[in-house]
Design a protein around this nucleic acid. Sequence first.
DNA 1: GGTTGGCACTCACACACTGCAAGTGCCAAC
DNA 2: GTTGGCACTTGCAGTGTGTGAGTGCCAACC
Lengths: 350, 350
Amino acid sequence: MNGELSERRRLILKLVIQEYIDGSVPIASELLVRKYGLAVSSATIRSELAALEELGYLTHLHTSAGRVPTDAGYRFFVENLMDRTALTLTEQRMIRHQFHQVRTELDQWIQLAGAVLARTAQNASVVTAPRAYQARFKHLELISIHETTVLLVLVLHDGTIRQQTIVCDVVRPQDELSRLAARLNDRWADGTVERIRDGVHDRDVSDALEVHVTDVVIRSMEWFEDQLNSGIHSDGLMEVLSQPEFAKVARIRQIVEILQGGRGLGPLIPRALASDGVQVVIGGEHGHDDMREYSVVLTRYGIDGEVAGVVGVIGPTRMAYPRAISAVRYIANIMSDLLGVFYNGENTRY
Amino acid sequence: MNGELSERRRLILKLVIQEYIDGSVPIASELLVRKYGLAVSSATIRSELAALEELGYLTHLHTSAGRVPTDAGYRFFVENLMDRTALTLTEQRMIRHQFHQVRTELDQWIQLAGAVLARTAQNASVVTAPRAYQARFKHLELISIHETTVLLVLVLHDGTIRQQTIVCDVVRPQDELSRLAARLNDRWADGTVERIRDGVHDRDVSDALEVHVTDVVIRSMEWFEDQLNSGIHSDGLMEVLSQPEFAKVARIRQIVEILQGGRGLGPLIPRALASDGVQVVIGGEHGHDDMREYSVVLTRYGIDGEVAGVVGVIGPTRMAYPRAISAVRYIANIMSDLLGVFYNGENTRY
DNA sequence: GGTTGGCACTCACACACTGCAAGTGCCAAC
DNA sequence: GTTGGCACTTGCAGTGTGTGAGTGCCAACC
């Protein structure tokens, strides 16, 4: 995959792709010679370009148009050619600063990660909330809202919070609710759904509210486990629309649909959760027709064996891969660190 | 505002606007005569149209184009001409059914309201979460997550939940945390920010964690009151893009920016919160240049004096006002009912 | 064999031109 | 006040054309 190409061809391919990525205009032989002061004439470049086209790395739309990378070309670029850059220190500092300012709230991390990623990579971003691999009960609280209305707040082991309202048949004073909550917290501490479910059969519960609470908790936890792949937050529609690919209305509709519906994006999440490192899926590699003109750069973040989520960038195949990859990697590290604080209480103190 | 126009002119204006709303094509005199079998000739209609144009209710883009309503025309239509329809019973039943299925979770109501509204009115929708007029403390919980890491869950009177992580300098066992939480819950029950803030000065608190928790709670509640107008959820981008107005890319950008940034939308929320009934703001009436080509139909929902939010529809000025208004009104009623259950424990039981 | 200049060839794109269809505005007649 | 007739305006779709960018090929050269 590597020795196949002569040094010169590798260089030319790299230049073509880099130029195309930042100009979005098909690249001509003439331009390469002029702009990079190559020591050969444009005719030579033309024959090299023709060879690269023969190998499947480039195409052109019509005879008199410059070259454009194919999916295979981008793939080769990502794998073998591109410079592995990082974000500048200034950028890193600015990003860290922003995260520092919202340090305490999980939802805001997610939102911020999406916003920063979109701005940094100039494309749309995708973020899923960190999820434990398995729902584990942490805490529940029953709060009397108004006479027979009770608010159930369920905290899971990974910090997920779910709220539900329950309407009782009789008025329950707050201290009765608190006692029930304390009993259940004690009984279910760190329990999985299975354990809680099994516990129901082992004892004979007569209190209607307790039965109902148990039911709601079990259903919430089951629902949680079902939803592991969903809940994709996306941001940066405006940023991705600034890419020249979206000069046509049909194209805009397409990306909006992908981002909102999550169609075509869904299958990538479990894959990213299951792999290490940054995943890059380019155009046709999706095997999904709607995604043929889009690339996705995704990676997992979180704490091994405990909790994980996914952050990524989506945009046209003509994407600034080096930058997208470093941005995604950097944000994923930040998110992992933040979760580390949450889980293990490292670093920061008040 | 009403007696100014002859019966015939009112009819013609109404027909023009209705036709234009559902066809989005400028309306010709000929068409009106043919389609509605009017008893006069097209020349007569033409002179009436010219008169309506003179009065400022219609325009045309060039000599040989049909008539198009002006903002004033739409305004007159909404105020005096349109049929006050309601959603069909079938639609109402379907919508109620959907809400019934997610009855227990607040976030889902909001999301569903947005989705339903967008689909029903074929435009973008705007929903804000229900907020109490003033933040009132309801309950807080301190949960030991891991050694020195503590999760603070704050429940406000209107059901809003905020979570924050706190890192202590020393390890705090759960039962110590629970005792502290119980003490604070007792002390702050139903308190406003002012009361909590004043309480701080009245006593001498030495425990570092207690100081920190107090600080976080106060800041959260202040932040909450600051944020009353923000937190605008929007949905239905896809629906609004299906309107023919968005055949041009520039126009799409505009609506995306309005929906995401909330620019131009912000000022409307407090206005809607402060008024009764459905508010309709048409095009230039916004007094905001970016909004000159958009109309917004908004209304408050909630419980008087307790808690309120806003639901609405936004789309091009050529909007199906009767339908948008009835959809908004219907959804607002449903949301109010749901909140009623939450606050007063009416209706439903398990 | 690789490299080069020269040149014919191919398209996309911008531009102007044209004819057509849709509608209006006006007017004289009723 | 209403009507038919007619001139006039304008958008729009279709067509033709010139231009510029860039390739592919080839014969000559090193």
